[in-house]
Design a protein around this nucleic acid. Structure first.
Lengths: 175, 175
DNA sequence: ATCGCTGCAAATGGTTTGCATTATG
DNA sequence: CATAATGCAAACCATTTGCAGCGAT
């Protein structure tokens, strides 16, 4: 496995308003009906990866998910984690996040409350923000250009004021 | 070389306001002083790649740059194009753009007028937009979270209304 | 008993790099 | 002529995939 630093910071709520958590119960239900409808099977490995994904912090990478899953069952493979997360993404249960050049990270879909991200380029902290006005301006821009918005990505890279942000584990650059 | 479809759409100005072009002269000058200050040499290959980059349309990939450069001099290598573009990025003359899962694209830096992108998921058209209000809201969000903004990335994915957008060469998905 | 899933290892695709050679300042 | 740049091929790294065996429905 390609383990690197795997330092994934799990900070939150420096001070500002926080985004409300996704409705895990609903997503579990949606996942079940998605799997049923597609004839997808519920295997031990899948249940494990899914549980790790639902119950651990957000923005984990495949490596991190695998590491945690393996603590419970070390027979699980890389490919299975990839395939499982891909399944969750196809079913609209997970979103894939591509920050800068780092590996893909995953978060629960939480569609009814779109949020975007602030990424600290120094310590790698990832925070979520919601700003309806930006979304509003965005669709105005889009219609000005004759675009029908399907999706968007808005990432703010910077330095956070967290006192613990001294480590320089900078895994997160914009490019 | 990894040539694929290389269909790179060069459309512009569907109707809305357009972003003003970057000041190529100034960038040329900045590049020169950057290269001088770093002891970087001006070779035939570099000059060629740089000219292609400055004088062809924006948002080209390494493949596209290489193809155009080879039309002028077929002895130029992949590695050199990569290295040259990386040099331009380091010197602040070029910006690397990572749309979805596609290959890196490049554009002239044009720092005094930040713009973001609208990407058509159907035909791959890329347009630029400027929206000072979004930038403003953005920094407000950042300071609310105790962030010092260093950079940001704002991409709007959707479908454009261009009549030629019928080809479905969809190279540009968000993830 | 199907047919989807898993693990493994090999393949892929974009990007980077070591090294011997070439060429600029 | 010192040293940066080039070309090539090999290395990298995240991700994907073919396939034989396994296991859920």
């Amino acid at each position: 496995m390609n383990s690197k630093k795997t330092t994934a910071s799990g900070k939150k709520g420096v001070s500002g308003a926080s985004v409300k958590p996704p409705d895990r119960e609903r997503l579990r239900r949606e996942l079940k009906s998605y799997m049923d409808s597609q004839g997808l099977r519920s295997t031990g490995q899948r249940r494990l990866v899914i549980d790790v994904f639902f119950d651990t912090r957000e923005h984990l990478t495949i490596d991190e998910l695998l590491e945690i899953a393996r603590a419970h069952d070390d027979r699980i493979s890389y490919a299975t984690v990839y395939r499982t997360m891909k399944m969750l993404a196809s079913g609209g249960i997970a979103h894939e996040l591509h920050f800068g050049d780092g590996p893909t990270r995953f978060e629960l879909a939480d569609d009814d409350a779109h949020h975007d991200h602030l990424i600290c380029t120094e310590c790698g902290a990832i925070m979520e923000f919601e700003e309806p006005l930006i979304e509003e301006l965005q669709s105005r821009v889009a219609s000005k250009y004759g675009f029908e918005v399907v999706d968007h990505k808005h990432e703010i890279y910077g330095k956070c004021l967290d006192p613990a942000c001294k480590r320089r584990s900078s895994t997160h650059t914009k490019n």
